[in-house]
Design a protein around this nucleic acid. Structure first.
Lengths: 151, 151
DNA sequence: AAAAAATATATCGCATGCGATATATTTTTT
DNA sequence: AAAAAATATATCGCATGCGATATATTTTTT
């Protein structure tokens, strides 16, 4: 039946996205392992390397993660000495997150990761243009799914 | 610097895949909630609806998940009465997974989900062709990343 | 045939993710 | 100005994911 065909894995859009996400993160794994961080921790650092000293909310917004994911993540990172968490004085609801020296220094080592990954994934079966297009479509989809006025 | 540019979220491929994956699963959430199952549980059911009575390994292979993820997942589903786990008699290392009546019946309710999601996501900013292309590229990438002889 | 290697599950520990909810602070209403 | 609403974090509980490792069974080597 037609309806049942839609229930096959290969006919779904979600499964390839879900599987690809996990597989790409697995590719990062050996590089991140050397730095002693996980993929979400790497994401937080990337945000901070770009804009240091932002709030928990701003980080969770950029990463599209809930604060109940980000708060414990940041606490772990504080424990690891990568970041500092300081409650804002002008608005005591806010907690400002900034890089420690250790977190700042890590940027240099991390800078090599994207290039190494491109080399690793680089393959004649997928050209770079296709991957750029992929990124574009995904970003469009993300934009659509994060529009707050959807309902 | 050029290397540091690669460390920006917007220049990464992985982040859009990772974020899109979570966002799409969030879209499934209200529908799956009605069925009382999670997204990975839904994936397992889809596999079984297509091919009932397969081994733990075959399921983990199709979902590209490790057995240490799948085993507890299946145990939970057995506890929920969705599936049955029976150790194979011809090869006692294997455990055969089959649908219970409850699991079989759920297929009918689940059959409506893909259509409802398409309606929900359907938007003039992304046409269906783009999404098909997206799926294609992702599947190519998955194929590349799961080749066992990569190293 | 006995030993070694391979295969199939399973267990453990830890880090996410997230729905539901709590707490403190600030802003808006009345 | 007091009450209500909104905002910003945080806590709790539970279900993944996965690296490391253990156990049982089967297959391959010697």
């Amino acid at each position: 039946m037609l309806e049942y065909d839609q229930l096959k894995l290969e006919n779904q859009l979600c499964f390839p996205v879900y599987a690809a996400s996990r597989l790409i993160i697995r590719e990062y794994q050996p590089f991140l392992y050397k730095l002693g961080i996980t993929y979400p921790q790497y994401l937080v650092l990337m945000v901070l390397w770009e804009t240091d000293g932002i709030t928990v909310n701003e980080i969770s917004g950029k990463l599209i993660l809930n604060t109940n994911t980000v708060t414990p993540l940041l606490k772990r990172m504080e424990g690891m000495g990568l970041i500092k968490r300081v409650r804002s004085t002008c608005d005591e609801r806010k907690v400002l997150i900034s890089l420690s020296d250790k977190g700042k220094i890590m940027r240099e080592k991390a800078a090599l990761i994207p290039l190494q990954l491109v080399e690793k994934i680089n393959d004649e079966s997928i050209d770079l243009n296709k991957l750029m297009e992929l990124k574009e479509t995904l970003n469009r989809l993300i934009g659509l799914l994060t529009k707050s006025d959807r309902y």
